[in-house]
Amino acid sequence: MSSALVHNHPSGPGRSGQEFAHDIRPGMANPVMDCQAVFRALLLTMSRPGTIATLGRRLAPPAPLTPAAAAVFLTLADMDTPVWLGDAATPELCTYLRFHCGCPIVREPGRAAFALVADGRRLPELDGFAAGHQEYPERSATLVLQVTGFDTASGVRLTGPGVNGETVLGVDGLSPGFWPAFMDNHSRFPLGYDAILCSEDEIAALPRSVRVEV
């Protein structure tokens, strides 16, 4: 049976498994500890909207995935979480995520547990993503939105759980149409998607529970 493993390789006969592995960009250097650190950054930002956490550039993923967004996927996605990539679903990126996460890549936005919006200036139809059920609000999508940067001095006003009074979050490289869409998303609480905003090396999060005022 081992002959099947060596010869029926997706990249065709004549290439060994080692060569093929080198086509895929490497994952975390130390998966256990790196994923723990990335998760704590995610927990920090999700429980304190408006907070920006620096993940650094621990990964060099294929375009258009940013290092921070790649770290989020490698920390949270696996065989139980269908991932939607939209028009970012290049063969190289699909292979990268399938290899490191083992996650299914789906075409229908409504099936996705995690959805990549590769360019925050060009939003897909956000209503298409799962918002959960009244009985199971956690069965909703988490959007991974790639943006160009953050600003804590000016931006939208955030209030609600996780925010002491109010705070301000500025996001560069995000379509202005996102904020009205997110207010609609909040208005159907406890239903709704949650969003993780990723620049090259930083993340911020917007749980559905947070109120946004532009």
């Binding site: 920390t75 956690e138 559905r208 529970s209």
Partner: peptide, 13 residues
């Protein structure tokens, strides 16, 4: 990973 995903959803709701 499964628990971490549940924790993030718990925080969001």
């Amino acid at each position: 990973r499964m628990i971490r995903r549940a924790v993030l959803k718990a925080v969001a709701v």
